[in-house]
Amino acid sequence: MAEPPQPFVFEPGAGPQRRIAPHVARNAGPIIEVLRGVLPESGLVLEVASGTGEHALHFARAFPVLTFQPTDPDPLALSSIEAWRSEAPANLLPPLALDAASDDWPVGRADALLCINMVHISPWAATLGLLRGASRVLAAGAPLVLYGAYRRAGIPTAPSNEAFDESLKARNPEWGLRLLEDVVAEAEKAGFALERVVEMPVNNLTVVFRRG
């Protein structure tokens, strides 16, 4: 199987560091609508695996009272995030290097944590590390919000998601769609309760947890 295309492109004329992920234009609005009923009225929102930085830019514009801290382990992603900050309001902070699988995070506390499209595009160890880290930095009642494609027990997986899963595993055998029930079980071990699962466009889900 040929290697699937990268999930981002470089913006024409913007230099090599600013990336565009085409899916952001489609899903940023629906994600923001869910977040309006989830995020706190004020405080710091930590985004793990910010990727291109476009979601962080959309969120900072949509929630001007909140402060957003983008992070990513990839130096090229950090460069892209920083480049997009030139269009951002002051509530979008400079990006930080953060590996979700590590227990050494550069952020000690946050009032909410977002993670978009990481769980299926990373080894399972990254998801376990994300949950451990979230339990360290979030206080009781704070939200942990995951977004992406999942499998669910007893529910047929959409053909498009099956094809997506195959393409992910072709790129890296440790990647692939996770069973939502497995993620929920690990989140509960880390001290989180499942609040709700929201059906999103293109067979994605937003999964909201609360710190116990």
Rank of each mutant, 00 (worst) to 15 (best):
A21S: 15
P22H: 02
V24H: 09
A25H: 14
A25L: 07
A28R: 03
A28S: 04
A28L: 08
E33T: 02
E33I: 02
E33D: 13
L35Y: 00
L35G: 13
G37D: 01
V38K: 00
V38N: 00
L39G: 06
P40K: 14
E41T: 15
S42Y: 10
G43R: 08
G43N: 11
G43V: 06
L44I: 08
V45R: 00
V45S: 05
E47V: 02
E47C: 13
V48Y: 04
V48L: 06
A49N: 00
G51T: 05
T52L: 11
T52V: 13
A56R: 05
H58S: 11
F59H: 09
A60Y: 03
A60C: 14
R61D: 10
F63A: 01
P64G: 04
V65D: 12
L66S: 12
T67R: 13
Q69H: 09
Q69T: 03
Q69L: 05
P73C: 11
D74C: 14
D74N: 12
P75E: 10
P75S: 14
L76W: 14
L76D: 13
A77Q: 10
L78P: 05
S80Y: 00
A83I: 00
W84A: 08
W84T: 07
R85A: 01
A88W: 02
P89D: 03
A90G: 14
A90S: 15
N91E: 11
L92A: 09
P94R: 07
P95K: 02
P95D: 04
L96F: 07
L96D: 09
L96G: 08
D99P: 08
A100D: 02
S102Q: 03
D103W: 15
D103I: 09
D103A: 15
D104Q: 14
D104I: 12
W105C: 05
P106H: 04
V107D: 08
G108H: 07
G108L: 15
D111V: 12
A112K: 02
A112D: 12
L113Y: 07
L114F: 01
I116E: 15
N117F: 13
M118A: 00
V119R: 01
H120G: 06
H120M: 06
I121E: 11
I121G: 13
W124H: 01
A125G: 05
A125R: 06
T127Q: 10
G129D: 09
G129K: 04
G129Q: 02
G129F: 03
L130R: 02
L131N: 05
L131R: 08
R132H: 15
R132M: 09
R132C: 10
A134D: 10
A134V: 11
A134S: 15
S135P: 10
A139S: 12
A140P: 07
A140V: 13
G141W: 02
G141H: 01
A142N: 06
A142L: 10
L144V: 02
